[in-house]
Design a protein around this nucleic acid. Structure first.
Length: 395
DNA sequence: TCTGGGGTCCTAGGACCC
DNA sequence: TCTGGGGTCCTAGGACCC
């Protein structure tokens, strides 16, 4: 195994992240089956700890089902700020004590390029062990690590042995022994839909995919991503990590209601609250957006999205609220819904020049003007809908 | 007892313009 | 009778991730 001329990339995954944060924060929970999640009758398990997993409890499972599997399971209501603070500590520990070549992948995982740290005595395995000890001793969190020369294999490696595993994948034999025997559904980016299609065509393991010569078939399944999947299955390619993070591309808020409803007044309250939340995030990132969407899930679980693109970018709460209500009344009025959500996309940084220009004038004036311009855009459509609503209320 | 919420990226059709 | 073609934007939906 020669790592000296090859890139060394590791993927670090914090085991059972939310549940582990709760345990680290409250050691009396240790050794007991706990799940973190919502606490309503419609909530699902966000993160079970390993004691809960022994009972067959899995992430995504309805809470009531988890209780059926293990009546004594402790349900802990999620505390996202706690998890975010652990996540920040995790990343800063790595960057201060190991290396700042970190690609943040999600709240509980990251990639690191450690090529420059590797020497004949400081092997990738030793570095990985040191990182594991560091995070355990400083944060009391267990992590598993995959070590390889590209992101895909590193990710598959950290998944391979949990919790507290370290898996190295460098040689062709490593790929044959560790990656190839796995069912195709274990492959990163192969979800339920791709899995179904592949298994239908006889591709049941990653080895089947790696050795598949029917490129026409693979194109029909993967489309333009065919080479990405084929290369990954064969362990071909390496990656440059991405060290900077752009602004979000979209922001949305949604909520599954306690009970399905048609009540417009109830729905309006959610839309108003979501609009406020979206607005403060837009302000935080100094973004404004152009495309506003409203989405609902029906009682039958069908998700429908309707959107409108304005002629101007906006971050104005009142504008967004009115457009959301407008879309809702146009498409979803009087429908029985399970989930209501709104979102904004087509985002861009607030234009500096425009800002400076606005600064010459009283703030409220410029805001009202831009509000009016956009309202004019939608005015005709909106008044039509108001009439429609009035008609519906009369009948 | 009945199935979360927050994202990203891609595709495909239609409208519209030159 | 029989229908240009290429580019861009909008819209809706789907797949995937954690």
């Amino acid at each position: 195994m020669s790592n000296t001329n090859r890139k060394v990339i590791i993927h670090i995954d914090i085991n059972a992240f939310f549940a582990s944060c709760e345990e680290a924060n409250n050691p009396s929970l240790r050794g007991k089956p706990i799940v973190v999640g919502g606490i309503t009758k419609r909530s699902v398990v966000a993160s079970p700890n390993y004691d809960a997993r022994k009972y067959g409890i899995k992430a995504g499972m309805p809470i009531f089902m988890a209780k059926n599997l293990c009546p004594k399971v402790i349900i802990v209501s999620h505390k996202f700020q706690l998890y975010e603070s652990y996540s920040r500590k995790f990343i800063s520990l790595l960057s201060e004590r190991v290396s700042n070549k970190i690609e943040y992948a999600s709240i509980d995982e990251c990639y690191m390029d450690i090529s420059h740290l590797v020497t004949s005595t400081n092997t990738p395995l030793k570095i990985a062990q040191r990182i594991q000890n560091l995070i355990k001793s400083e944060l009391n969190l267990g992590i598993s690590i995959g070590v390889s020369y590209n992101k895909f294999l590193a990710k598959m490696g950290s998944d391979y042995r949990k919790p507290m595993g370290i898996t190295q994948i460098f040689s062709k034999d490593d790929i044959k022994n560790i990656i190839w025997p796995q069912p195709i559904g274990n492959m990163f980016f192969v979800g339920k839909s791709l899995e179904r299609k592949l298994v239908n065509k006889g591709i049941k393991t990653i080895e089947d995919l790696a050795k598949c010569k029917n490129l026409f078939l693979l194109s029909s399944i993967f489309g333009s991503n065919k080479d990405f999947f084929l290369n990954n299955a064969n362990g071909i390619g390496d990656d440059e990590l991405i060290y900077s993070y752009g602004d979000p591309k979209s922001i949305s808020k949604s909520r599954t209601l306690l009970n399905d409803t048609k009540d417009f007044n109830e729905i309006k309250i959610y839309i108003k609250k979501f609009t406020q939340d979206i607005c403060s995030e837009l302000n935080y990132y100094e973004l404004e957006g152009k495309t506003l969407s409203v989405f609902i899930k029906s009682s039958k679980f069908v998700l429908t999205t309707k959107s409108k693109t304005l002629s101007k970018y906006t971050n104005d709460q009142e504008v967004m609220y009115i457009v959301f209500l407008n879309i809702f009344t146009e498409f979803f009025f009087n429908k029985k819904i399970r989930l209501i959500g709104v979102g904004i996309s087509n985002l861009k940084k607030i234009d500096e020049r425009e800002n400076n220009l606005f600064d010459k004038y009283p703030k409220h004036r410029s805001r009202i003007n831009s509000f009016r311009r956009i309202i004019n855009d939608i005015n005709n459509q909106f008044s039509k809908n108001i009439l429609k609503i009035a008609d519906k209320l009369k009948s």
